[in-house]
Design a protein around this nucleic acid. Sequence first.
DNA 1: GAGATCACGC
DNA 2: GACGTACGTGATCTCC
Length: 874
Amino acid sequence: MSKLVLIDGNSIAYRAFFALPLLNNQKGVYTNAVYGFTTMLLKVLEEEDPSHILVAFDAGKTTFRHETFDEYKSGRQKTPSELSEQLPLIRETLDAFQISHTELANYEADDIIGTLSKQAEAEGWDVRVYTGDKDLLQLVSDKTTVALTKKGVTNIESYDVAAIDEKYGIKPAQIVDMKGLMGDSSDNIPGVPGIGEKTALKLLKEYDSVENVLDSIEHISGKKMKERLTEHKKQALMSKELAVIYRDVPLQVAIEEIKRRSYDTKQLSELFKELEFQSLLGSIDGAENEKESLEDISFEAVDTLSEDMLKSPSALMVEVPHENYHHADIWGISVVHEDGRYYFPLEAAVKSDAFRKWAQDASKEKYTFDTKRAMVALGWHGITLKGVTHDALIASYLIDPSVSSHSVTDIASRQQKNIVHSDEAVYGKGAKQKKPEDPDLAEHLVRKGEAVFTLKPRLEEELKNNEQFQLFTELEMPLTLILGEMETTGVKVDKQQLEKIGTELDEKLDQLQSDIYELAGTEFNINSPKQLGPILFEKLDLPVIKKTKTGYSTSADVLEKLEDKHDIIPKLLLYRQVSKLKSTYIEGLLKVIHPDTNKIHTMFNQAITQTGRLSSTEPNLQNIPIRLEEGRRIRKAFISAEPGWSILAADYSQIELRVLAHIAKDEGLMEAFQKNMDVHTKTAMDVFHVDEDDVTSNMRRTAKAVNFGIVYGISDYGLSQSLGITRKEAQEFIDRYLASYPNVKEYMDDIKEEAREKGYVTTLLNRRRYLPEITSKNFNRRSFAERTAMNTPIQGTAADIIKQAMVDVNEALNNQNLHSRLLLQVHDELIFEVPEEEIDTMKELVSSVMEKTMQLDVPLEVEVSYGPTWYDAK
DNA sequence: GAGATCACGC
DNA sequence: GACGTACGTGATCTCC
């Protein structure tokens, strides 16, 4: 059975362009529409598996419709140049896919599609049309269906005859009559003034067509309506005519010629590389097997190491293929320096005194990619890696934190050095990942080493150009080692304690579950929003507050609004809270207790966030509950590894707002900190113009939310959500805030201007974040970029400070030969384990080092607390 | 395996 | 006509 897919090229490109942020490659070529178009194309090819396919484009400005109506499509906004530039690239992509595309002077893409679908139907084929334009619904028949883009590009809604009947109550052929009556503002088709979709459909249900409606004007009720129809008779007929797709276009392509061909893998992968569509490279059949040919590279694979193979400086690659490097599986090691390239298996390294000595010698310089991974994995094999002076991962991240992949391969290709295959190409991906044959693995690791070695000067040069070299060598590189030590040390957890809490939670869950079933009058999966929605909003008939794209929203903020409407609601909220604790924190944490150490070893990602903060995974120890007592108890399971030691927590008080006060040099705000006031109360005083004693709890709550908004860069919308007020009211609070703190206002304006001029913003230590969308014509994207511009220097500087504090504290611990150990960092706090006899020293030392780490115009304040468990350190 | 929804921390 | 709202991680459900 033949199946023809027809794609409305301009329409889909248009949708893709607006659905995606304005992406561009290194050369500054915009690619978002091409990307969106291509993802849709890949999905269509896979899902439809068509035998024939063609993409139709509009040609030129005028078509035969302009002869009927010279105002046709006039008044339309010009296509943005960022989009029209991409249309040739889309055609190029289609060529690489070997998919036919065509356009024809005097006709629109619609007409080409109409003509080919007619021909295909005559042959008895199935036809499927992809477009964002409802006009094409008129082509729907027994053989033809239309896929309309709903949201974005890949989210589509499919229309057959029944679906059109359901939605509009008319036949496909009547779509043009509908247009004739209601018109189409986007094409400047006038229709009949005063008639919209509703009225048009009502008339058509009774009279079938525009012609019949006009012939029956006297029977139609309503004086106004009669007048309108009489007066605009001609216009209605013309509008209908304009909407009719012409299905006998003199096409040059014969239908047999648009047979689907297999695509040109080489051309396509080259194009994707050029456009930097890394994620799509993998989805091209054959691309992962067919590695591009790289220039030969010579190396030695050895089983015994000698000293002359290990020089200073060398690139050192330790391949730890599994995401979690605490399990220490190492596939192989390569060393590359000026005089040679070597590959050897882990066993060779472990048994080699020469390697151990070299690796542990801080004076032997090493360049790596992801030092922490290599360091921790080697550490598990008893080798303490030292002397790393350059980490390409960290360098790449500092140069531009937004790039989606910092792999060796991608860093190399960004520097125009195609000398290393992707890991995916060599190892496969996902479940298919496997260790390749020895020579292939060896060559791959050597290539990575070669890339790291040769790219080092280029990356350093970029860092220096950005004035980030100091940030790199004196902050982030030392920090990597500290994080590695923290991860290797791990945190002791009391397994029995976790299990005990788990049992209690289970009992609660059982009780809640049966209560909920009883209140609902039925049993269902409470964890499924899809099942919960209908029960709440249909069976129990509660008011619908919010919908998601797949159904009713049942999120906590919705449920809170319904709290006193039904007894089931508080039970649900509690159920959610308890089951989150059980699954994420009890079961999740028990799962990641390392069998060898009985501790939890998280991994801090130092190269992921856009602001410079760290993140934590497997498990995430930066989101252990604290707000609600029920969850806070989880912290009782976090204990010190040594008997009698304590957990000590030191947190910066209001660090972001202090940073803001410093950056903006705002007197009102600075006063709050210089006098050590409660900052939210102070904000309430300034915003509401009242004395301290007259600040109500509600005023303070509002002020706190506004401060929160400032720190996290939320919008008026975000603030309105958190305070449960209207957007307008939220904006008023923001305006009052800025009026109270004029220098903050000035800072906000200046930083936006700076972002527009430079294209990026920086933190106190020159961390950088690019904001290309700050000049976007799209209001939402531009606004988002502006909020980011205001927020990133604040949050990023706070991140700089605590990172610097970690380096300083670590140095102090070493200098004073203390046994206390840094365990965790949670954005504004540091967690240590401390022997009894060092408690007093540490209380003093940690707070003074943290407070002195950076000299701001306002004092930094640190609060220290400690106890036998993390819970008690409050 | 991917995407949607929900929830936790800062 | 577009359209989505601080970030990052993780669990579960659902559909393919």
